[in-house]
Structures are given as C-alpha cells and as structure tokens.
Write a protein that binds this DNA or RNA. Structure first.
Length: 857
RNA sequence: GGGGACGUGGCGGAACCGGUAGACGCAGCGGACUUAAAAUCCGUUGGCCGCAAGGCCGUGAGGGUUCGAGUCCCUCCGUCCCCACCA
C-alpha cells in the first residue's frame, strides 16, 4: 500500500492541467457560460492562507460548474497600483514597477501552487501600460459624457505626506501612514458624477437577489435617499439677494423654526467673512475640528450669530436669525438648515446653548397642549400638529404634504429628493497610479490628450524619497505642448484613485487581448459575473464604484448589462492565535509550542522553553507575526489538506481559526480517501447479506452526491466536507467486496462518485484517485455525478413518536406511509401501548416520513 | 445617535420549510497494534440521577404563539459589524 505523497502527486497534476489547458475559457461554445471571479489581489509580496481560502472558494465553484457542464471563465490578475509600492520606493529606493513585478512573480507561483482552475492566459496587472492606457481612454469617454468633471471641493489633506487621502485612509482624524492630523482643505479635484446614478443604483439593488442582504442594506444606507422639501428663506433688509435655500425632511415642523444655520463653507458665510474678521476667525475655528467618530461625538456645538435675519416663508410677520454653525455640512442638502429645537436633538442642544426659542409644534398623543413642554430631549415621535396655523390638527405625515403643497403654491420651494451619496473624488497626488490624460493650457483651458497620443505613460525614475507627488516634481514629464494651440502647457499630475482600476477589470478579463478597452462581443457574452467572491470590507466602496462604472459604460454602449455581479458572496477571514513574550514582542507560530495544561493550554518558545502569553485569534498580519503561508503547509501535508481545512471548519462567510490540529484532520481525511482507492479489495465480512449490503452502499453513495451537491450550491462548504467524511466512513466499513457482482459494482460506483465529489476541494488527490480507477481522461474534465432521488431515500423510515411533545419511542414505517397506516403502527406498538396505559389519546399528529406526536388528555 | 447580524457541548460548528438538538471535525477518555513512543485503527464523550432499564434537565435570560420552538413573536442581557453633527 503506497502512502499518498502530495509532494509528488500535486506538481504532477498541475503540470498536466497546464499542459492540456483544461481551464481555458471560451472553448466550448455549445455550453452555457459561467463567470466565476474572486476579487483580484493586491500584490503585497506574500500569499497567506487567507488568500488561499478566498481563492479556494472560487475554485470550488469554478470546478463544480465546469463539471456541471458550463463553459467557465475563471481568470486572475493583479490590483497593482497603490501606496505600498511607493512606500517601498521611499524606504528602499526600488522602482515601484520593479517592486510590484517581483511581488507578482512570487505570488503568481504561490497561487499556482494552490492548484486553482484558472485560465492564466488572461492574466494582467492594472499597472500594465496595456491596462491603464485603456483606462485613460475610458476616462476621456466619461469626461465626454459629462460624468467626469473638475470642481473645488473640501478634501482630507495629509500635511506630512502632502496628498489627499480618501476617507477610508483617515483613521481617527489622522493620516493612516503619517499619523499627522488631517486637515480639511479646498482643492480642485477630478470627480466622477456617481450621483447621477444615485436612484438607479438604489433601484438596481432590488434586482440583486443573489447578494447578501447585509451588503444591499449597507449600499442602500450609503446612498441614503430622503424625501423632503427644499425652500428659500428670503433675507430681510438690504444685502438680501436671493435668500437662503434650505433642505428639510420635516416640513411639518416649519412653524417651530426658531433659527437658520448655515455651514461654515456656505457661500454666504464666506461672503460675510470677507468683510468681517470675526466671521473669518469663527470659520477657521470650525475647519480645525477633527472628523473622527470620537471627536464628533464629543464636539461642542459652535455657533456664530451673523446678525442677518430671514422671513419665515409661511408667516412673514416672523423673522428668524441666521447663524453659522459647525454641525451643518456644506456637502449635504443645501448646506443650510432651519432649526426646530423642539423636534430635533441637535437643534435643541444648539438652542439651549445660545438661548434661542423652543416652540413645540407636534403634540404627542394623550398630551395636553398647555402642559406639554420640551426640556432637554427633543420630541421625535408621532402626534398632532399645533401652533402651526393652517396645519393645526394634522398628523405628521399629512403635515409634511400640506407644508410642501403650500410652499410650492407660494413659489418658495418644492418637494425634493436628496441623497447622502456624494460624487466620487478620483484625484490622487500620487506617482504610482494611472495618470489622468488631461493637459492644462493657459490659453485653451483643460484639453484631453488626443487619442493618438494615448497612452500617457508613467515616467521612470520618479523620486519617491520626499513626500508629495513625484509626478509634479519630475523635471520633464509634465511639460508638453498644447494639442490645440501648440503653446506651452502642463500635464495633469494627479493620478486616478486605484478604485477606478478595479471598477472595470472584470470586463477586461472577458477579452484581455482586445485593442479597445472593452471587447464588446466578449463582454456581452460573459457578463455579468455569475459569482463574485470577496471580503465584506468592499461592501460599499468597490462594489458601488463597479456598479456605477458598469452603468456608465452601458450607457456608452460598451456593455450590455447594468449590474456587473449577479451573485455576490462575502467570505470570512482566516485568523490565528497570537503569541507574545513577556516584554510584549510578538512571536510567530512556527517558533511556538503549545501544550495542554489542565483545562487550559500553555505556550512556550519551542527552542528555549520561554513561556509566552496566548492572545486572541486575530486576522493574520505582519505586525502580529501570526501569518501562515500556504507554502509551509504544502510542504508538510500538501496544498489539498490546506484547501480542505480552510473550507471545512467554519461556514465560508464566517472567520475560520487556523489550527495545526485542524489541518492534520484534513490530512487524515486525505489518507483515508486514498486508502480506499489504493487498496480496493481487502476487508471482508462474509456474514453480511450481500444484496442488502450493495443496496445500502448505493444508498449511501446517492445520498452523499445529493448532500454534497446541495451543500456546494448553497455555499455550505463546511457541510459538504462533513458529508465527505461521512461517506468515506461508510465506504471504509467495507461490507464485502469479494464476491457478488452487485457489491463490486456498487463499490465502484461509490468510489467513482467519491473522487468527483472530492475534486472541487482537493483536486490533486481527486485526479490521482481517478487515475487509479483506470479512467483515461482527467477528472477536471469529468462530469459531476448524478444521483437517483429514489436511491438516495431509504424505503423504510424510523419515525420518532412523541407523547405531548416528548420523545417516547419510535416506529418503523414504509417511506410515504399514509396517516392511517402510521396510526395503526403506533397504536399497535407494544412499548408505546405500555406508555399510553391510563391515558386517552385525544389527537395524533402525523407528519409524513418525519414524526408522530400524540396528545393525551 | 441610527441601522444590522449573531448568542447551541471543553473548542470550531450542524440542524435548509417549526418536526429525533449537538451531524462532521478538533480536543479528551478507554482499548488494539508496538519492547516503547509516534503514526494508524476500534470504541466512547452535553449535564445530572441510576448497578441497570430508564428518568430529569438542556440551544444567553424571561415571557408568548403552537400538538411540537435552536428556528416564529415580545422584553431584557451580551458580543460583533456598518454608518454617523445627513437636517
């Protein structure tokens, strides 16, 4: 009996797959298409088992669908622009391109070692000129369509690194890399007009029935649609102009307004600041405030009374003061609010601080108008309007409608829909990204780089040693002639946010050889992605940007679908225990020995015996030194064991804790499976009834096929692996292989099914088993086993019998037995009869093939 | 502050539609093989009572609906995630 040796078997089959190009997509036009995709990795340098789990999941789907008769597209590439390469360049003086290419080379080999069913012929990196050059063409397309534009906006500015930071790069008000307090700065930046699609993106969520509810909800909240009233308050006195436009979702509380508040960035505030040092100083004070959650939580409400007054739009006898307030945001609504302190907590806090009137206008049910007062808590609940003129007596909803109607009739405003979603700022002051293909000409303004001059190539030899944008510092690159007037001009030195790179790569994969950015025929044939797999951390940003880009490209006629990802699965992480020395230094798991000690365990450094502190199981990270590399596992047990383990121990959308004992369990399974194929005929139990044994084995086989198939389809890989364990245990019991053609055939059927059921999880092992069965072709090309539903069911059921809901016995009944049959069996059962002595059966509930419950009086 | 998810043995988890709670794995315990150990194999393992047959309890806590609740409803406790001065 030959021991299974993954070190020999695994490379052999990987070479065979590559040689035969089994995973090449688009080779079977008669088959339906299936596009399986995992979010492509950032080439950070090393693969860890978290990657392995992510790609193993996609691989199970890809291999399963291939076996089920689909022409599967399962590509791989690299999300290759980004900061780590610049950091490496700054710290070690290496070119970002060289650093990235080296990392890709290492990670590609590591990925290949996972034995993934990937069409490697389609591989590309976003830092390839062939990719980002075409992205520049797409940028110009968006610009032409009015979906890209420049505007002055307030951005997160890192004063040390001298660059704009995305919101997600600001952690607790500080730059994630420099640690410097982030400033809010006004800068002219490029934006994508994602807000044009706000409603469409929201509506589209309803069609994504194979997305997790949680992700759809997060996107819905992020888009943040609200219905309300936009109205203008006319300024009293001179200097009035057009008045102040305000947005509210509570027009019903209009009569409770006691002040107007505008954002510090509001044009009116800036106009006032120009002539008043006090205003200017207040605005500066507001800008200094941090944006972290903690700071917002504790931030004091600050206000500045401008001295201006506005008329109440529904009651011109009433004038309201205009304040500048730090809690009003310029980029939501109109950047101005009316304050109704009685029914908004923030307004109330503000009113109490600055001694402004609090007039309740919604009377809670059961309250007396004379007795009801708002003290320190605003009233947000339902009720009847009062103190509200023509709206008195209406409920909140009717009041909203009435107020909107009246304001519209008076020509002072209109019902409006407002979204929380903001346009996507895509400018980055970075040197390692896709250059924005635009030229600034003193005479002609913004000029697109002509198509013939594309791509705009990143220059080599950029200086990353200083903070700021190396493209802007580069001596020659930015100086060009204007394509229009041939006068001296400058290139745009901002590069595109790397989220732009990842918002169309899935379309490029369908035809990476296309001359144009997107090969329309291939994209039309392959998209949408049938199953997309990736981390929950992209629930909003990447997944929303990709949905926007797909819509924009559809409107341009380049794509035929609006939704890029028909199915989405968000996988959990792989975690590992952390170990640290008494002095706090982290120790990597390979140096640690963990021993049981009573009910708990103790960890020591294996070499020295030095005791360690066992920490929580956490996401693998370099800083905590708890990273496990798949290669290390492959050396010990083979990559199939690692694949099996990361898929088996937890549901795929939950985190899984990596343990060496767990991998050893998977390794045991591999050896047990191999033993069945390697030694097909020992172990005889002659006393067994062979006909019965064959039937039982066939039942187990068809049951296993059914269970594993359904588990894979339902993304319950952990359950699928559990069913494999069970099935192998059944085969191992090995009733009698010696004689009886029925039994030998049943066993052969079982082994053939087993190999194919195992194949998505442990593909190398499966190939070896398949070959051992004498199959001439590879299992990678074999069809998924079918099951016979009749065979998967047993013809006799063991029905538990409950008396008053407690299990008290059981009866054997033929499958599908009628209520009456079961009744007779239950009443005729001597054990149950004894239990029912002295009791009257009032009711008998029979659930076919499942359970019986007797209710006694 | 708003929104959401989840609480099941020593551990990871299973139970898909309300129908035998704890599948499968890990760890533990007992045994076989071995001079011995490792590996492997067999058995066993929710708690309590009992020699046994068997009984009682049990899915965070409390209540409800139902013949029947881990699953549905209400209240509470705990953990985690997302968003957040969003008008």
């Amino acid at each position: 009996m030959a021991r299974y040796d993954p070190k020999v078997v695994e490379p052999k089959w990987r070479a065979a797959w590559a040689e035969a190009e089994v995973f090449r997509a688009g080779t079977a036009p008669d088959r339906p298409k299936y596009y399986a995709l995992e979010m492509f990795p950032y080439p950070s340098g090393r693969l860890h088992v978290g990657h392995a789990r992510n790609y193993a999941m996609g691989d199970v789907i890809a291999r399963f669908k291939r076996a089920r008769g689909f022409d599967v597209l399962h590509p791989m590439g690299w999300d290759a622009f980004g900061l780590p390469a610049e950091n490496a360049a700054a710290e070690h003086g290496v070119e970002p391109l060289a650093w990235t290419r080296d990392n890709i080379a290492v990670m590609r080999e590591e990925l290949k070692r996972l034995g993934l069913a990937i069409d490697w012929s389609r591989e590309f990196a976003t830092c390839d000129l062939e990719y980002y050059g075409r992205q520049q063409a797409l940028f110009l397309t968006l610009w032409k369509r009015g979906l890209a534009y420049r505007k002055e906006g307030v951005v997160n500015w890192d004063p040390v690194d001298m660059t704009v930071l995305a919101n997600e790069q600001v952690i607790d008000g500080r730059g994630w890399r420099s640690g410097a307090a982030v400033e809010r700065r006004k800068l002219t930046q490029w934006f994508f007009r994602i807000t044009d699609y706000a409603d469409d993106l929201l509506e589209g969520l309803k069609t994504l029935d194979r997305w997790p509810d949680r992700v759809r909800l997060m996107q819905e909240n992020w888009i943040g649609k609200s219905r309300g009233l936009r109205l203008t308050f006319a300024l009293a006195g001179d200097g009035g102009g057009e008045g102040v436009s305000v947005y509210t979702t509570r027009p019903d509380t209009l009569f409770g307004a006691s002040f107007l508040a505008i954002a510090p960035d509001h044009p009116l505030a800036e106009r006032l600041a120009a002539g008043d040092g006090g205003v200017a100083a207040f605005i500066a004070r507001c800008r200094a405030g941090g944006t972290s959650a903690a700071e917002i939580e504790t931030a004091e409400k600050l206000g500045f009374d401008t001295g201006l007054k506005v008329f109440h739009p529904l009651d011109t006898n009433k004038k309201l003061p205009v304040w500048i307030a730090n809690f009003v945001l310029m980029d939501y609504g109109t950047g101005a609010i009316f304050g109704c302190p009685a029914h908004d907590q923030r307004d109330l806090d503000f009113a109490r601080k600055y001694d402004l009137p609090v007039l309740p206008v919604v009377l809670p049910p059961g309250e007396n108008p004379a007795a009801f007062h708002v003290k320190q808590e605003a009233y947000l609940g339902p009720g009847r309007l009062y103190n509200s003129g023509f709206m008195d007596g209406l409920d909140v909803e009717a009041g909203k409608a009435a107020a909107i109607a009246r304001v519209e009739a008076a020509g002072r405003g209109e019902g409006a829909t407002v979204y929380r979603l903001r346009d996507w700022g895509v400018s980055r002051q970075r040197g390692w990204g896709c250059p924005i293909p635009v030229i600034h000409c003193g005479a002609c303004g913004l000029v697109p780089v002509p198509e013939a001059d594309l791509p705009v190539r990143l220059p080599e030899g950029l200086d990353f040693s200083q903070p700021g944008n190396p493209l802007a510092r580069h001596s020659g690159w930015k100086h060009v002639r204007c394509p229009n007037c041939s006068g001296p001009a400058e290139r745009e030195t901002d590069t595109l946010d790397t989220f732009v790179d990842s918002s169309w790569y899935f379309a490029r994969f369908t035809d990476p050889w296309a001359r144009e950015p997107i090969g329309k025929t291939a994209a039309g044939a392959w998209l949408p992605v049938d199953q997309y797999i990736g981390g929950i951390e992209h629930a909003v940003l990447h997944l929303l940007y990709a949905r926007f880009m797909t819509r924009a490209l559809k409107d341009e006629g380049l794509l035929t679908v609006a939704e890029p990802f028909a199915g989405l699965f968000t996988q959990g992480m792989v975690t590992h225990e952390t170990y640290r020395r008494q002095n706090g230094e982290w120790v990597e798991p390979s140096a640690v020995e963990v021993q049981p000690e009573g009910a708990t365990r103790r960890a020591v450094i294996a070499a020295t015996g030095e005791p360690l502190i066992i920490g929580d199981s956490e996401k693998m990270s370099k800083s905590k030194r708890n990273v496990i590399a798949p290669a290390a596992i492959a050396d010990l047990y083979g990559i199939d064991a690692a694949r099996l383990f990361v898929l088996s121990d937890s549901p795929p959308d939950r985190d899984v804790q990596w343990t060496s004992a767990g991998v050893e369990g998977a390794w045991r399974l591999i050896n047990r499976i191999w033993a069945e194929f390697d030694a097909p005929a020992p172990g005889i139990d002659v006393s067994e009834d062979q006909v019965g044994a064959a039937a039982e084995l066939r039942r187990a086989t068809h049951r296993a096929i059914k269970a594993v198939t359904e588990a894979i389809e339902g993304f319950r890989f952990n359950s699928a692996v559990a069913r494999l364990y069970e099935f192998v245990a059944t085969l191992r019991r090995r009733p009698a292989d010696r004689a009886g053609p029925g039994l030998l055939a049943a066993r052969r059927e079982g082994l053939s099914a087993l190999a194919r059921l195992v194949a998505p999880f442990a593909p190398h092992l499966a190939e070896e088993c398949w070959a051992r069965l004498g199959e001439p072709d590879m299992i990678a090309r074999a069809p998924w086993p079918d099951y016979d539903p009749a065979l998967a069911e047993s013809d006799e059921k063991l029905l538990p019998v409950q008396i008053n809901g407690k299990r008290r016995g059981e009866v054997r009944a033929p499958a599908g037995a009628s209520d009456d049959e079961v009744r007779r069996l239950v009443l005729g059962d001597p054990d149950l009869g004894r239990r029912l002595e002295g009791l009257t059966v009032r009711k008998m509930i029979v659930v076919q093939d499942r359970i019986v419950n007797l209710v006694t009086g």
